[in-house]
Design a protein around this nucleic acid. Structure first.
Lengths: 223, 223
DNA sequence: TTATTTTTTTAGATTTGTCTAAATATTAAT
DNA sequence: ATTAATATTTAGACAAATCTAAAAAAATAA
């Protein structure tokens, strides 16, 4: 089955919002898609008749198994294209999102499987998010926010929750990127900020906001 | 300026039809785009207000300089993607057209220029058609149809006019592809068919239709 | 629990790209 | 130079995706 780009965007947004909350509200969707609640209601009705989601008016929405399947395929495409753009075409990781938003709607399954093979079956996209495989399986990801790391533990950055251009900008400025190794030196109760040290650099302070958004895989026991 | 996929398809079709005939008719466009003449008329009016073409009712249509510029950029994208699909993703040259039809509407100029560099600035797509460069220049192409080659001359296949799936199928069957070297052995006046010989193969006969569609660059003077 | 605020839906329009059927213009044929 | 055939355009309609404004339902607060 083929769906319009617009429908695919709805499916994808619902999938992402469902990670936070089982039941997705009309307003949350309107916000995520930068559209009006009335438009969301209209579209939900259409997607319901296509059995991509369960929807009862005023009761919010939830993807069906089929809806999830579709969402994961779109996410797979998005992340593989991002990987391609960064690894092969040498884009910066902060500039690939918008282009991938377009590329993810190209329909050929064969294309994406060939691309996957060409890229040698990467597990993570440039932002550290896992890339679903051809059959929709998503590589397990055990990560925690810097804010939750114990003192003196170290880890490797492998994801960020808030991937806005502004946040990526800030991280670039602080010299933090995927794969960056860091150690938690101090945690300030006062404002939730954290002092971290990266290899061959002076310690730097990151705000609570950043500490909560920066995801790392870390080796639990000390440095 | 960004245009819808539909508009881009019209622009591209007009550009191609203009190679045959300066002035493009409504019916020819409807045929090329697999749509109705009435729809063509509607669209031509819209494209005219965007100054992409000159159009007077009942008088046919012609692209403006801007229209041509847009057309060439779309063609550039189409052919670069085809090259990518064949060279990097190992698709057969007969299966890439439809996928490229989708990819050609991805808007990022930076993407296509990076792709061009990644592919090492190819001059021809997998069907032998020239790839316009970043500024819209099209590499000169001196080629002639097999039907026009003198007896005993040889040449290298570098293009085909009729790129329908059926024709590509037939050529594949006859073992003819881009880069194939061939020699004209006999020309039959009766039906216009031509006997050609390819390296380490028995001579084969191709119909007038095929001979007219098979383009080669050839070394004028005999074998 | 009633009133107020917030969320969601409905009703009715709009835009883009398409269609059919009918009308009109152009071209070709007698 | 009419007539017949063909090509093109107009008129009116439709589906998809969106919008605004108003109505209705649900959640929250007094």
């Amino acid at each position: 089955m083929k769906y319009s780009s617009s429908k695919e965007n709805y499916i994808k947004a619902i999938f992402h919002l469902q990670q936070e909350q089982e039941n997705v509200t009309t307003n949350a969707l309107a916000e995520a898609l930068q559209t009006r609640p009335a438009s969301v209601t209209d579209m939900l009705k259409k997607l319901k008749t296509q059995k991509l989601l369960q929807y009862e008016k005023y009761r919010g929405v939830k993807l069906t198994a089929e809806g999830k399947r579709v969402a994961i395929q779109i996410i797979r495409k998005h992340r593989l294209w991002e990987y391609f753009l960064v690894e092969k075409l040498l884009f910066g990781w902060e500039e690939v999102h918008d282009i991938a938003e377009e590329l993810e709607h190209i329909s050929s399954k064969k294309l994406i499987d060939r691309l996957d093979a060409f890229l040698d079956f990467p597990q993570r996209d440039p932002h550290g998010d896992p890339i679903p495989d051809s059959s929709g399986r998503i590589p397990a990801l055990q990560q925690s926010a810097v804010s939750d790391m114990p003192l003196n533990s170290s880890g490797t950055v492998n994801g960020i929750s808030d991937q806005s251009a502004e946040m990526l900008e800030l991280l670039k400025h602080k010299n933090i990127q995927l794969g960056t190794r860091l150690e938690v030196k101090k945690k300030f109760k006062a404002d939730g900020s954290v002092e971290i040290k990266m290899r061959s650099q002076q310690p730097v302070n990151i705000s609570e906001h950043v500490a909560k958004n920066l995801l790392v895989s870390y080796d639990n026991k000390n440095k």
